[in-house]
Amino acid sequence: MTSDFGGQLRIWRGKRRMSQLQLALVADVSARHIAFLETGRAKPSRHMVLRLGEALEVPRAERNLMLDAAGYRAVYARRPLDSATMEPIRKAITHMIAGHMPYPAFVFDRRWTVMDANASGHAMLSGFGLTDGDSFIDFLLEPGRGTELVENWHEVAAHLAARFRLESAHLGGDAVLEQAAEALACEAGEVDHGGRGDLPPVLAVRFRFGGKVYPMFSTITQFGTADDIALADIKIEMFFPSDEACEVFFRNMAG
C-alpha cells in the first residue's frame, strides 16, 4: 500500500466502493476537502484521519498506518491477551465460554487460529487432532477432511467461503482468507436447495461423531467497542444443539 496519506485514503475509499461525495456525507466534511486530501493539496488533522478511518470502517492496524502517513503517532495498541491490562477481557471470555457448557465454545483470532475453548470445545478439538495455536482453516482445507467430519459439508463449505470473503473485504483484503474462500467455494460446487421447501432459519452443521450425526448451529460474538488491535480481531464461536439427541450427547460427554 502507498505510504502517503492521500493515496491510502483513495485506496480505502475504493475498497469500500464509495465516491468522494458519499464519503464526505458519511464523514460530515465537504467533497472538495476529500479531493484535496487525496491529491495532497490539504493536510489532515489527527482528528480528521480518525474520522475518515471510522467512516471507511478501516481496521485499527491500518488506521495506525494512515496516522503515520499523515505524520501522527499511532493510537491503537496491540496488547497480548495474557497481559495485566487485558485481565478483565480474559475473565469475560472465560466467563462466556465456561458458562456455555456443556456445549462447545471456541475463541479464534483474525485468521481462525484456535486461541482457547471450553472443556467441550477442547474435547472436540482433541478428537480432530487440534489444540490451541492450530489453524482451523488449514485443518478444514486438508483433503477430504470436511466430508469426513460434516455430513452436509457442501452447504457448510459454501457458507464458510462466503463468510471468509466478507471478513476479507472488511479487512481490506486478506490473502489467507481469500485463498481459503476460493478453495472452499471449489469444494462446495453448486449447492442445490431445490425441492426442500423453505430453508431452515439457520444452517445446521451436521457433525459426525462415533458413527452418528449431530446437528448444531453457532453464534459468533466479537467485542463491539474494542480499540485494541488484537482484541478487535477475536471471535468467540458458541455452538448449540439443533435437536434433543445432540443435546443429550453433549450433556453426557460433560458428565
Rank of each mutant, 00 (worst) to 15 (best):
K91S: 13
K91A: 14
I93C: 04
H95D: 13
H95A: 14
M96H: 10
M96Q: 13
P102I: 14
Y103G: 00
A105V: 05
F108K: 01
F108C: 05
D109A: 05
D109L: 10
R110S: 10
R111E: 14
R111G: 03
R111A: 10
W112M: 06
W112E: 08
V114C: 07
D116S: 12
D116N: 13
A117H: 06
N118R: 06
A119C: 06
S120W: 07
S120E: 12
S120V: 04
S120M: 14
S120P: 08
S120K: 04
S120H: 05
H122M: 15
A123S: 14
A123E: 14
M124L: 15
G127P: 10
G127E: 13
G129W: 13
D134V: 06
S135R: 07
F136I: 01
I137D: 01
I137W: 03
F139C: 05
F139W: 15
L140C: 09
L141W: 11
L141S: 01
E142W: 04
E142Y: 07
G144I: 04
T147H: 08
L149S: 02
L149Q: 11
L149I: 15
W153V: 02
V156D: 04
A157R: 01
A158W: 01
A158V: 05
H159S: 14
H159A: 13
H159N: 13
A161D: 02
R163W: 02
R165F: 02
R165T: 11
R165G: 05
E167D: 15
S168N: 10
H170K: 12
H170N: 12
H170S: 10
G172W: 00
D174E: 08
V176I: 14
L177P: 08
L177I: 11
E178D: 15
E178P: 03
A181I: 08
A185E: 02
C186G: 08
E187F: 00
E187W: 00
A188M: 03
V191P: 04
V191W: 03
H193P: 08
G194K: 05
G197C: 06
P200G: 08
P201I: 06
V202G: 02
V202Y: 09
A204P: 02
V205I: 13
V205Q: 07
R206A: 10
F207N: 09
R208S: 07
R208K: 15
F209C: 08
F209V: 10
G210I: 04
G210W: 04
G211Q: 12
K212I: 09
Y214C: 03
Y214H: 11
Y214I: 03
